[in-house]
Design a protein around this nucleic acid. Structure first.
Length: 193
DNA sequence: CTTTTGATGCCCT
DNA sequence: GGGCATCAAAAGA
């Protein structure tokens, strides 16, 4: 069975999602930036245990955990199956499918910013409250593994105050569609230098 | 390029 | 009531 292996810890799943293709309703692109969150991680919504808001994170793996950040922006996560409370936040896409639709949703804009950020990504794909709890392994979602191992870089996560030093942010090396640049020189051991 | 700040909804204690 | 896994616009360099 080809497909993303969701039965792995979030920090590995997050790396393996780099270079994958994510679409929703036929609109989307290549995943170029992710972050991992874990139940033992003070920065994670799952850290405090199951609540009404984070219930999806403790449910079936492969489902979408969608939450509202700062009262304005939706953020999309994939629940992983290695253990309860783990998930991967999709932080940036390189738009490849439905470019004009994404442009309309976000207003005429630079292609590089259509999906560069968790809030922008959700606005471009029209993902919101209604998608919370849906399986990302079935239509209208489509998640396709990277055709070949992608060169991945890692760095500290963004926009959090707790455990901010944890290097659980991952990006496609050299991509021009990241939400924010990575620290120069930051690479993974198997990445080309 | 950088830093700063306002908008805004909901969850938890 | 406090705090937040964000974004865009504005202003300075």
């Amino acid at each position: 069975m080809p497909g993303i292996d969701i039965e792995q810890p979030p920090e590995l799943l997050a790396q393996n999602l780099i270079g994958a293709t994510l679409t929703f309703g036929g609109v989307g692109g290549v995943v170029v930036e992710t972050e991992a969150y874990d139940i033992e991680d003070p920065a994670s919504h799952a850290f405090i245990g199951p609540t009404a808001r984070n219930a999806v994170m403790f449910g079936p793996p492969g489902h979408a955990y969608v939450y509202l950040a700062y009262g304005l922006h939706w953020c999309l996560n994939l629940v992983c199956g290695a253990r309860p409370g783990g998930a991967v936040l999709f932080r940036a896409l390189e738009p490849t499918l439905g470019l004009e639709i994404m442009r309309e949703r976000r207003g005429l804009e630079d292609v590089r910013r259509l999906g560069a950020g968790p809030g922008r990504l959700c606005q471009a794909l029209a993902i919101g409250r209604a998608e919370n709890g849906l399986s990302m392994l079935e239509a209208p979602f489509h998640l396709e593994p990277a055709p070949a191992p992608a060169p991945v870089i890692e760095g500290p996560r963004i926009g959090i105050t707790k455990a901010a030093e944890r290097p659980w942010r991952f990006g496609l090396a050299g991509s021009r569609f990241l939400s924010h640049p990575f620290p120069t020189g930051a690479t993974l051991p198997d990445a080309p230098g």
